[in-house]
Design a protein around this nucleic acid. Structure first.
Ligand code: FES
Ligand code: FES
Lengths: 143, 143
DNA sequence: TTAATTGATATCAATATAGTATCAGTTATA
DNA sequence: TATAACTGATACTATATTGATATCAATTAA
């Protein structure tokens, strides 16, 4: 059971890096080498984020990517939705016995509640929050 | 993002069915046809549950499977762990910048907290609970 | 003009999930 | 005691998802 796939992982890290260099364009190449990600794969991730208006780009020499919105308005939840799709519980269980009326199914109800909790929690974690932690140097000290 | 895979799904339903026929052996064939699951696939799921001491079996004619413990002691969380492995967040992000001291990494901390919540919630949902809902007939009425 | 860059898109590889097939061993029961 | 209904064990195939490459046209600062 994997919570974050590579795409989401790379997206978060790329966004944090863009946030750290606010105002200037950062190239995919720079991100890839700095964060140790496969370059062409990262390219795809960045393009996907452009489509979702999270970042903007500039072509040509000295081009690159830049955040398109406030880091506090980019939550990990949204990234999960973009790169991993909406959460699917499973198909409807107990078709014959319990599911005659899905809206009253207890199992389904419980699982959807859990889903809500998870969504809410992931929504709290924003790029802005991560950036502040990074600047505060909370984890920059050697182990 | 899928929360429950087919194996977990089938496992839950099979266990509920066994719980509903407490004290007698139920064959894989009966479960498969009743619950509309692929027979040989279910067989594998049942064997896995035997290995984990959730159920016991009897070979030969009139054989089948039976719960090995109290339905209230079988939680969905355990099933997820058996069939989907432990929850993996993602590899360690921000290797160079943040992760010098993993134990202090905020992102990791947050995500692990979410993981705890999810685990706790899934632990609450037991086969026993589902059985009682089933017997109460909460969802047996046609839609 | 040219090298550094993104846009767009096609393709491939690796892994995980879902499902099948086979055959040996056990046991109620006729 | 033969047989059909069962599970045990295990190898295999198929499909879907995830991770990663490859190619080439278009743009732009220097
Ligand atoms: S499992 Fe299908 S509605 Fe309950
Ligand atoms: S992401 Fe690795 S410890 Fe923080």
């Amino acid at each position: 059971m994997k919570v974050l796939t590579k795409k989401t992982d790379y997206a978060i890290r790329a966004l944090v890096m863009l946030g750290a260099q606010k105002g200037s364009y950062v190239s995919a190449k720079a991100i890839a080498s700095e964060q140790d990600m496969p370059y062409p794969f990262l390219r795809g991730v960045l393009q996907e984020m452009i489509r979702h208006d999270l970042i903007v780009s500039k072509e040509g020499v000295q081009g690159g990517f830049m955040l398109a919105k406030d880091p506090d308005e980019i939550g990990v939840r949204q990234l999960i939705e973009i790169f991993q799709g909406t959460v699917q519980i499973s198909e409807c269980m107990f078709r014959k016995q319990i599911c005659a009326n899905r809206s009253r199914c207890v199992l389904r109800h419980e699982i959807m509640r859990i889903e809500q909790v998870v969504h809410h929690e992931f929504e709290q974690i924003t790029i802005g929050k991560l950036l502040r932690k990074l600047h505060a140097g909370e984890n920059l000290r050697p182990a």
